[in-house]
Structures are given as C-alpha cells and as structure tokens.
Nucleic acid binder design. Structure first.
Length: 161
DNA sequence: GCCAACGTTGGC
DNA sequence: GCCAACGTTGGC
C-alpha cells in the first residue's frame, strides 16, 4: 500500500463534489509521470489526500481512497472533450485513470501555509521546488503528520481570545 | 495579473 | 540530439 496526494481545482471538482457523488473517475491527467503513478503504483484501497489547488486557500481538505485499478481514460477518445488526444487509439490508449472514492472531509483544511510551516514535511513531494505534478506519493510518516495536523486544535485562525 | 518552474513542441 | 519558443501549472 502506498499513500498519495491528488490535486483538484475546487472550481472544477471539489471535496464536496466527491462527497456528493461518492465515487469519481479521475479524468484528465495528461502528464506522463502522474499517469505512471496511477498505472504502475496505485492499488485499490490506497489512501489519498485530497488537495485543493489554484484557489483562495490551497491545501489538503480531506481523504479519499483509490477505488479501481487503472483503466483507459474515456475522454481521450472524445473529440468534443478538452482532454481529447488524437494520438490515442483504443488498441493503444495513451492515458489511464483510476476511480477515487470519498472517505472524509476535514473539519478544517490543512492549508498549504500550515504545511510549509511544518518542519517534518520539509521533504515531502508537494513542497519541493517547482513541483507541478497533480498526483504525488506521500510516505506513511508524512501522511500521519498531515492527519495529525487535520485533527489538531491549533488550527490557523481559531484563536478565540 | 504576474511570475517561476517546468514540460512539450518543432525546427534544425 | 539540441535548444528556443511556447504553453501550463499554481502560488501569490
């Protein structure tokens, strides 16, 4: 089992959207490295940190789970789709996806600002310079730290006095 | 809107 | 294979 972080723009698909539908094909990954993670390394049941990117408050907002093996992303064959890829054939699809299922929404997001402030996460893939991958591996230790931060009472902005 | 980082494309 | 140009990501 491996641990993961998957990014989504909440304007496009948020943790609330995932909570509503329960399970979603993770369509539209068009980066080879991210695809290879899904194809080669993900297993059903792997835990996923759900991350909101390109928004007012980027951060980890909840937990999901890998719910299927990798299979061809249908959107690569759809001419009308923004994810259409003319180089893909059904015999040799270029892009795959996995289904992701909702697990939990954090009461408070673990913001990127807080992640950056946690010294034990200095080495994590999300915080490496120039990282733009939409799917990133996390170690078990890094995963535990993020979950600890999610349940911590020392949330940013919750100082009452 | 700006900019850094990085991937992809395409000419050669 | 090199590399400049261009596009995309994503934080700020």
């Amino acid at each position: 089992m491996r641990h993961w972080l998957m990014k989504s723009e909440p304007d496009v698909f948020s943790i609330d959207d995932l909570a509503r539908v329960g399970r979603e094909p993770w369509t539209g990954v068009r980066n080879h490295q991210a695809r290879n993670f899904m194809r080669d390394d993900m297993q059903i049941g792997d835990p996923v940190l759900f991350y909101h990117s390109s928004c007012a408050e980027p951060g980890v907002v909840g937990i999901a789970r890998v719910a299927s093996a990798a299979y061809p992303d249908p959107s690569q064959f759809e001419r009308d789709s923004e994810y259409f890829d003319a180089r893909s054939t059904h015999a040799q699809p270029r892009w795959v996806l996995v289904d992701v299922e909702f697990e939990q929404k954090f009461a408070q997001p673990v913001t990127l600002a807080r992640l950056r402030n946690e010294p034990r996460l200095a080495g994590c893939a999300l915080l490496q310079r120039g990282n733009r991958l939409s799917i990133l591996p996390f170690t078990r230790a890094q995963w535990d730290i993020v979950l600890g931060m999610a349940s911590s009472r020392q949330q940013r902005g919750t100082r009452h006095a």
